[in-house]
Simulated assay, not measured.
Amino acid sequence: MSLLNKLAIGHKYEAKAQRYLAKQGLDFIEKNFHAKCGEIDLIMKDKQEFVFVEVKYRKQQHYGSGVDAVSHSKQLKIKKTAMLWMMKNNLSPSHTYFRFDVISLSSDPEKVEWIQNAIVEG
């Protein structure tokens, strides 16, 4: 599969995750925030809490769900990137409510797995 196809699939499922979270009452802030250390797929806001969302798509579940694909090293990159986003937006991590969620999607259009606080800060 070409890189363009992978990017198109990624954007399609990120948009689906964004719509799903909006239906759950979260407000959209930003998508695909890039830094040298990594990328945040979606940044949403749940009342007063910023939510950094990793979106994972699995066509098949043979090797586990999308949640299983968020390795420890990926978690560290997400955390570091989120801290940079907060600094860029003049938000202090010690005075800002935030969490890390994972949305796992599959080829089943009805199945959305939303894990809140999937990545524990620390």
Rank of each mutant, 00 (worst) to 15 (best):
S71N: 09
A82R: 01
K111G: 06
N90R: 15
L84P: 00
E49Q: 13
G66D: 07
M87L: 12
S71G: 05
W85V: 03
D68Y: 14
S107N: 12
S65A: 12
E54G: 07
V112G: 10
E110P: 12
Y57F: 15
S104N: 10
V120E: 12
K80Q: 08
P109H: 13
E49L: 04
I103D: 02
G66E: 03
K59D: 14
T81C: 08
A82Y: 01
I103Y: 03
K79M: 01
G64Y: 07
E54W: 03
S94D: 13
L76P: 00
W114E: 10
A69Y: 05
S65W: 15
K59S: 15
N117T: 08
M83D: 00
M87Q: 14
N89D: 09
N117Y: 10
V120N: 10
W85D: 01
D101H: 01
G122D: 07
L105M: 09
K111I: 05
Q116V: 11
K74V: 04
D101I: 09
R58A: 13
S73L: 06
S73V: 05
V102N: 02
V120W: 12
I78C: 00
P93I: 06
D101R: 02
I78G: 00
V102S: 07
N117Q: 11
Q61I: 13
G122H: 09
G64V: 06
V51N: 01
Q75V: 03
V70K: 01
H62V: 07
Q75Y: 02
K88A: 12
K74S: 02
T96P: 11
W114K: 05
W85C: 01
F50M: 08
E121N: 15
A69M: 07
K74F: 04
I115K: 13
I119V: 13
D101L: 06
K88I: 04
H72N: 10
E110T: 14
S107G: 06
E113M: 14
N90F: 03
I78D: 00
K80V: 03
D108T: 08
F98K: 05
K88S: 10
Q75H: 01
H62R: 13
N90Y: 09
H95F: 07
F100E: 04
A118E: 14
Q60C: 09
L76Q: 11
M87T: 11
W114L: 11
M87D: 11
